[in-house]
């Protein structure tokens, strides 16, 4: 295991090193928060879930086995957190509030706003499973197999989610956006 890799840091964190765990948080926070933003559609709700994800990862670091990638492991925790949050009616109400607040604080950059609106429009059409699969495959450049491992789903299911999500997304985009 190469020193300085996520997996080597995770091994140190397993021995109780909070400094190693801090490096892991620093390296993976963008991935986890970005992934959760695709799933929830809300930056505030995603950041709350991301905090819980890393906290749970710290509690469970003892059970981490360096068989797969650390990224896959942490994404799986994030996805499980998202699913649990979704099941909770109370949390859903809180998330709705966060969506409202987000709508008021959307960034001013015109191109950014346009891109976010397109993405929001696409995400709204997708099921959570399709969102998760597409966020990992398109957003994070993971292979189908890596996404399947991270989400704890069969490979064929992930392929199907990506294929159907892709069809829906392309249908939602205007011809200008698709063929320009």
């Amino acid at each position: 295991m190469t020193p300085g890799t996520d997996e080597a840091l995770a091994k140190e964190a397993k021995r109780g090193s909070t400094a190693a765990f801090e490096s892991l948080v620093r390296r993976n926070q963008s991935l986890v928060r970005g992934f959760l933003r695709r799933l929830t559609g809300s930056a505030a709700a995603a950041d709350d879930l991301a905090q819980e994800t890393f906290l749970l990862a710290w509690r469970r670091i003892g059970s981490y086995e360096a068989k797969g990638s650390f990224k896959g492991w942490i994404v799986r925790i994030a996805y499980t957190q998202f699913l649990q949050e979704r099941r909770s009616r109370q949390s859903a109400a809180r998330r709705d509030e966060a969506y409202m607040m987000d709508a008021e604080t959307v960034q001013n950059d015109a191109a950014g706003v346009e891109a976010k609106l397109d993405l929001d429009r696409i995400l709204a059409l997708l099921s959570p499973e399709q969102r998760a699969a597409m966020a990992l495959c398109y957003g994070e450049g993971m292979s189908h197999q890596e996404a399947a491992d991270a989400l704890g789903l069969p490979l064929g299911t992930v392929k199907s989610h990506v294929l159907r999500g892709r069809e829906k997304a392309l249908q939602a985009l205007t011809p200008r956006e698709v063929r320009a």
Binding site: S30, Q51, L55, L119, G141, R166
Partner: peptide, 23 residues
């Protein structure tokens, strides 16, 4: 699709505020 998913609303790398909050 890759561009949309990768670039839309991605949190910055090394966001110390978030890291400090978690730690």
């Amino acid at each position: 699709l890759r561009a949309m998913f990768a670039e839309g609303d991605r949190p910055p790398y090394g966001d110390e505020t978030f890291v400090k909050g978690v730690m």
